[in-house]
């Protein structure tokens, strides 16, 4: 059995952090279902699980024609009233028959995609992580994206985000085995993650992938802001003005592993050793604060003549 998913992460399109009470309206994608919230150590809200029916080809590294039928589980979440994520995943299993069954069969197995015919788990996993042309295969990213779009369309949001940013795309596969995690930074916005965990798959693995995607997005976005500020190239007030949105919006959101199940904490810790997310983040934050301090001092010197 193979479990694979894609998390997309982006900035919620609002000028300020959204209030706690607005989360229900923004994330209430399913009528009658409550949005779950937690407040410590950071405000986090997640929509109810949503199902999307699919009947399509699955990705394959060997370009085999593999047909899968079933449902994708998705959810949207907002962290710190600022960062929006769309996350979808499926469990790929071998179907018992080689033809499509009535939908009731698949609806009784939420999040399972059954393959009609033969399938090799590693072949599908490699094809999935290769980011082929969109639209040809089961596209979990598009499903995640669509739920993010629905959230961004909410009339509660003013669409005046403090800065422009890209959505990152993190594709992950999980299997059972000796615990380990392997993260790669692809071209542009693409990232891949292979997780091996002990025991049966549990949604805690999805939490881990979402948490990693969140922090990778924070780091990617902060790096872009610092690059664009042209420290040393542009004038001091200009540099400060360009760094300001990072201070207002992003710096306080760094909380790696905040919602990770203790059984998976070791995996986060190994990512902290290599590639060392928090190390890079910390050095960027210090650089920003130093710049602002130096620029303020220069400004004070000027005004005092």
């Amino acid at each position: 059995m193979l479990i694979m998913g894609e998390v997309r992460t982006g900035l919620l399109q609002n000028s300020a952090e959204i209030e706690e009470r607005d989360h229900q309206a923004v994330l209430g994608l399913l009528a009658g279902e409550r949005v779950r919230m937690s407040r410590r150590p950071i405000v986090y809200a997640v929509s109810p699980d949503l199902l999307t029916g699919v009947d399509c080809r699955l990705p394959s590294a060997s370009r085999a024609r593999i047909r899968g039928v079933g449902t994708v589980v998705s959810r949207s979440s907002i962290t710190g009233g600022r960062v929006l994520q769309g996350s979808s995943y499926v469990r790929v299993t071998r179907g018992e028959v080689n033809y499509r069954l009535p939908w009731s069969h698949y609806l009784a197995r939420p999040g399972v995609v059954e393959v009609l015919g033969k399938v090799s788990g590693p072949d599908v996993a490699d094809g999935f992580l290769a980011f082929g042309a969109p639209g040809e295969h089961l596209d979990l990213g598009s499903v995640s994206d669509r739920f993010m779009d629905v959230v961004q369309e909410s009339p509660v949001l003013d669409l005046r985000a403090p800065f422009r940013s890209n959505r990152t795309r993190l594709r992950w596969v999980a299997e059972t085995g000796e615990p380990g995690v392997h993260f790669t930074l692809g071209e542009g916005q693409e990232r891949t993650l292979k997780v091996t965990h002990q025991g049966e798959f549990s949604p805690a693995v999805v939490d881990l992938c979402e948490d990693l995607a969140l922090h990778d997005w924070l780091l990617t976005t902060l790096l872009t802001i610092v690059q664009r500020a042209r420290i040393g190239g542009a004038s001091r007030p200009e540099v400060s003005a360009r760094l300001a949105p990072a201070v207002d919006t992003l710096l306080h959101l760094w909380m790696p592993g905040a919602r990770i199940h203790p059984s998976l904490a070791a995996l986060w810790e190994s990512l902290e050793r290599t590639p060392g997310f928090s190390r890079q983040w910390q050095s960027l934050v210090e650089r920003i604060r130093d710049q602002l301090a130096v620029n303020t001092l220069a400004l004070l010197r000027e005004t005092n003549g």
Partner: peptide, 12 residues
Amino acid sequence: VRLFAGLHEQFD
């Protein structure tokens, strides 16, 4: 509409 809204998120 979705295309324009998505691009507005990313581009000035």
